[in-house]
């Protein structure tokens, strides 16, 4: 399949890319391209211009700075997967990067693209919801920050303007007592999640839960953050009864639809089980450091 005809530009700076977007209302940003190009082949997208940002310098990095883990939007999933820093301190993110698509796709797929595409089946959205991440977007008037909770406004829809580019993802820097996990059930490598759950918690020295975030993948029209489930955990000792109640609340927050991956009940049941298991792993990791 060959995509419909389009013009192509390969700017080397964010400003050049922004100017191209500003001049062309029917332009699309080409990041990793592993969602966009298949969509173009299927004629689900037919932009007049592709603004390829792969040659823009300075958009691929993973670093801790000023209380944040900062990830450049063009950072490849394979780079996240290989990062010693991520492995050591951000296990929820490490879990996530490892199960996105397949190893070949991860050589091109980007963290920013996974978020900006806002596919409810993508994996980073739930993870970033659990982390309480912030996103930095560059536009003609400078940059602005968007809280992840305000980002997924509808299926494939974000508050990013046509002439804005997502440039950075900020995750609160690791602190003592942090732990997280991402668990995904997929029919096979490369398939979208039947359901997946991201959990990030912080526990104090007595094992009390100080904060919690839970995000759900592919069980609704958008990625879902379950404030109720997370709220049940905070202040608790993460005992079995509380974990069970939170897992039930997460399953209730899911709004899955039946498809060839399973029924609504099955997917809710998966959310319940995955939340329980992810919390168990998150607690172990939090206590280990």
């Amino acid at each position: 399949m060959i995509p419909p005809a389009f013009d192509y530009a390969s700017p080397t700076t964010v400003n050049e890319a922004l100017a191209l977007l500003g001049q062309n209302p029917d332009a699309k940003i080409l990041a990793g391209g592993h969602s966009l190009l298949p969509m173009m082949k299927f004629r689900l997208a037919s932009p007049a211009l592709l603004v390829d940002i792969n040659k823009v310098d300075g958009l691929a990095y993973i670093k801790e700075e000023g209380g944040w883990l900062k990830i450049g939007a063009m950072t490849r999933e394979s780079e996240v997967d290989r990062s010693a820093l991520v492995k050591q301190k951000y296990p929820l993110l490490a879990d996530t990067a490892r199960v996105i698509a397949d190893p070949i796709v991860r050589n091109w797929a980007t963290v920013g693209g996974n978020l900006a595409h806002a596919d409810p089946a993508n994996d980073h959205p739930a993870t970033m919801l659990a982390y309480g991440a912030r996103l930095v977007a560059a536009g003609p008037g400078g940059t602005r920050e968007i809280a992840i909770g305000d980002f997924f406004v509808g299926p494939f829809t974000t508050p990013l303007e046509h002439n804005e580019i997502l440039t950075e993802i900020r995750i609160p820097a690791h602190k003592a007592g942090d732990g997280g996990a991402y668990l995904k059930i997929e029919r096979k490598v490369g398939d979208y999640a039947t359901a997946a759950v991201a959990v990030q918690i912080n526990v104090d020295s007595k094992g009390r839960c100080m904060s919690a975030g839970i995000g759900l993948t592919n069980v609704g029209l958008t990625p879902i953050r379950t404030a109720k489930a997370a709220g049940l955990l905070v202040g608790s000792s993460l005992d079995d009864a509380t974990v069970k109640a939170a897992a039930n609340a997460a399953a209730e927050a899911a709004e899955p639809s039946a498809d060839n991956r399973g029924s609504e009940d099955y997917k809710r049941s998966l959310v319940r089980t995955l939340t329980t298991r992810a919390l168990k792993t998150a607690v172990e990791r939090a206590k280990a450091g």
């Binding site: 192509y8 792969n54 394979s78 070949i104 091109w108």
Partner: peptide
């Protein structure tokens, strides 16, 4: 369709030649 681009495996059906 996997080929190596600068050493990294890539599905060449999902990359433009110009890239």
């Amino acid at each position: 369709c996997t080929v190596l681009i600068n050493g990294r495996p890539t599905k060449s059906c999902t990359l433009l030649a110009v890239q």
